[in-house]
Write a protein that binds this DNA or RNA. Structure first.
Length: 515
DNA sequence: CTGGGGAAGGGGCCC
DNA sequence: AGGGCCCCTTCCCCA
């Protein structure tokens, strides 16, 4: 009997153990399944989130495209219009203005227009922004300001995507914290870093130069001189327009400067100097001799010639400015300067648009007259040696050499965008008098160059020369891939696309093909 | 695609 | 020294 009891007890314990084991097994299975289930749920949720995000992006994209479609197709960055026109600015008005000649409806519909007839009675100023950032900001990027309203920080704020508070009255605008003297290196390093990103400046910052390049270079549309010019000339009106005053290279570089409301346009003017145009020159740096940069209320800053030579070779501590990557963030409070900037500080002169070519001339004179002619002299290298053809004078912007300072002056119009010579018939403007003279043949019909073998006449000698290949059969442009020859360089360029299968590739072809 | 003209930009040379 | 002119390059447009 006792044995039976023990047996039962053992059986019971065994059963209990088995039951426990079974429960444990079941729990384990449930746990495992639950874990798998949870994992699946989590993954599904993640996928849902990703899809939702994707959907939102798509919607955003569609919305943006709608906005773009509803807007004029080529809203231009305001920088684009900071060419000559900025010179018309009323210095005391503190506004920038673009000039549209009366009776010349040559602006495209989408062009930002500000009418300033040169009498200082500008009525409105249009700022049009185009950038990925601003587009992302949604519609309403076109902003108009009436006279006196323009906040000089406006463009920079917009460009940087930073929230902008419109200050109605520039005179009541709180003073900007611009203690330059405390952070010149930071400024410069920002600038240099940006330039370096652009791949056009292979040298570290100069300690005291103060122009600032900001914005996202990747968003910039780099146009060649020709590009911009053409773009501006393909407006509704095929005739000439003030659009040609735009600085060729002055495109979306994002250069901008801190503007004192009192000074208005000059900063924009100076910004144009440091535009893609000059930066694009073979990676050459710029040379700036000593320029006193005077900020109102601030201690004067000096551009020291010894410290501001920027050349193609790295001259300084690269890591030094790389440390300031963070400072690349656009800082609207940073005052920026350029030689021109400095000049305007020294000699603020009204540059209201005059019916003649005066405004460009005035501007340019402002740039080069005061001390700049002397400055050009200052760049003279080896002044006492060498013949007259030796290039002893160098462009302050691209370091290109010339044999006399006047050539430097003329050349620098390329960078500055000054076109002092205007056509009386169509208001086209030119940087060189001869170009104007050639242009005016369009109006006069003068074609002084006639072909000796046919009746054709030409306004430009080079066109005659090119035409004469028709008679001579000369085809100086040969395809390197198929021996085909062309009389027109453009023909070769187009032909090369046949080989590459590309439609838009550009193959620069120089006259080296000419034999 | 090819051929060709119109026109502007800009550097160099000469007087 | 400065202006006028030449020349080259480039882009655009059209047939």
């Amino acid at each position: 009997m006792a044995n039976c009891m023990v047996f039962h007890t053992q059986i019971a314990s065994i059963m209990e153990m088995l039951a426990n084991a079974a429960v444990a097994e079941i729990c384990k299975l449930v746990d495992d399944d639950y874990a798998v289930f949870r994992l699946e749920i989590t993954q599904s949720q993640k996928e849902n989130r990703a899809l939702r995000r994707k959907l939102q992006l798509q919607e955003l994209k569609v919305a943006r495209e709608r906005v773009l479609a509803s807007r004029p197709s080529s809203v231009k960055l305001v920088n684009r219009y900071r060419g000559m026109a900025r010179g018309e600015g009323n210095l005391t008005g503190g506004h920038r203005s673009l000039v549209k000649p009366v009776g010349h409806n040559t602006w495209r519909d989408d062009q930002p227009i500000t009418v300033d007839e040169g009498n200082g009675t500008s009525t409105q100023h249009v700022i049009v922004i185009e950038s990925a950032d601003t587009e992302a900001a949604g519609p309403g990027v076109k902003q108009e300001r009436s006279e006196g309203e323009e906040d000089p920080r406006h463009s920079s704020d917009i460009q940087t995507g930073a929230p902008h508070v419109v200050t109605k009255d520039p005179t009541t605008t709180p003073a900007q914290p611009r203690d330059i003297s405390r952070t010149p290196n930071a400024i410069l390093k920002s600038e240099t870093e940006t330039l370096t990103r652009l791949g056009r400046l292979g040298c570290p910052p100069t300690p005291r130069s103060e122009y600032l390049l900001y914005g996202n270079p990747s968003q910039r549309t780099v146009l060649s001189h020709r590009d911009s010019g053409d773009a501006l000339q393909t407006g509704n009106d095929p005739t000439c327009s003030y659009a040609t005053e735009m600085i060729p290279g002055d495109v979306p570089v994002g250069l901008d400067t801190q503007t004192n409301p009192i000074r208005g346009d000059w900063n924009q003017y100076s910004s144009s100097v440091y535009s893609e145009g000059f930066l694009d020159k073979k990676g050459e740096g710029l040379i700036v001799d000593e320029v006193t940069v005077k900020e109102e209320g601030d201690a004067p800053l000096i551009w020291n010639e010894d410290e501001t030579h920027l050349r193609g070779q790295s001259q300084g501590n690269t890591s030094d400015f790389l440390d300031y990557r963070e400072s690349l963030e656009p800082n609207p409070n940073i005052a920026t300067h350029s030689p021109l900037h400095a000049l305007r500080d020294r000699e603020p002169v009204s540059t209201s648009m005059a019916p003649s070519d005066s405004h460009g001339r005035i501007l340019f004179d402002q740039v080069l007259n005061s001390n700049d002619k002397a400055r050009v002299q200052a760049w003279e290298v080896g002044a006492t040696s060498g013949g007259s053809k030796e290039k002893r004078f160098f462009c302050m912007f691209c370091n290109k050499g010339f044999n006399c300072p006047q050539k430097v002056e003329i050349h620098q119009r390329v960078h500055i965008g000054v076109k002092p010579f205007s056509c009386t018939q169509c208001h086209m403007r030119f940087s060189q008098a001869w170009n104007l003279k050639i242009h005016q043949r369009v109006h006069t019909g003068e074609k002084p160059y006639s072909c000796s073998q046919c009746h054709m006449r030409f306004a430009q000698t080079c066109n005659l020369k090119r035409h004469q290949r028709v008679h001579t059969g000369e085809k100086p442009y040969s395809c390197p891939q198929c021996e085909k020859r062309f009389s027109h360089q453009h023909q070769l360029k187009m032909h090369l696309k046949v080989h590459t299968g590309e439609r838009a590739q550009y193959y620069p072809q120089t006259s080296s093909n000419e034999s």
